[in-house]
């Protein structure tokens, strides 16, 4: 069953995790983009986007990630991704995105990295 997008924030001391569910497409990508940018602008030192429950993401979603990554650099906010499942990793690989972001296996690894 194709699920609609769901976004949930988890706030930690040194980082904020944005958990993504369902799929990101042309219609909901702007919403995904706005949410990431507001977190970056709110001054969080580290934004981790957790893609563990993402079923698929269209090029609109990738565009949102690229824009967020650029805003984060400008705002001196560390930006990383984690939890790429097999299908999502395939899309990252196809698009040549694997080396554009720090990518961690799971949320825990990403948090450990953030507290260093």
């Amino acid at each position: 069953m194709v699920q609609e997008m769901g976004l949930q924030e988890l706030a930690f001391k040194r980082a904020t995790v944005l958990q993504v569910k369902g799929n990101i497409n042309s219609n909901n990508a702007p919403q995904f983009s706005v949410r990431m940018n507001s977190l970056i602008e709110s001054g969080c030192p580290h934004l981790i986007v957790d893609l563990t429950s993402l079923s698929f993401m269209t090029s609109a979603g990738f565009r949102a990630l690229l824009i967020a990554g650029r805003s984060a650099t400008e705002a001196q906010c560390a930006f990383s991704l984690c939890g790429l499942n097999e299908r999502v990793r395939q899309l990252f690989e196809l698009g040549g995105f694997l080396d554009l972001f720090p990518i961690h296996a799971n949320q825990q690894d990403a948090l450990i990295e953030a507290t260093k």
């Binding site: 194709v2 799929n23 497409n25 079923s55 698929f56 299908r87």
Partner: peptide, 10 residues
């Protein structure tokens, strides 16, 4: 279904 959704979207 997901692959078709993605491709149709593109």
């Amino acid at each position: 279904c997901e692959d078709m959704c993605l491709c149709a979207d593109e």
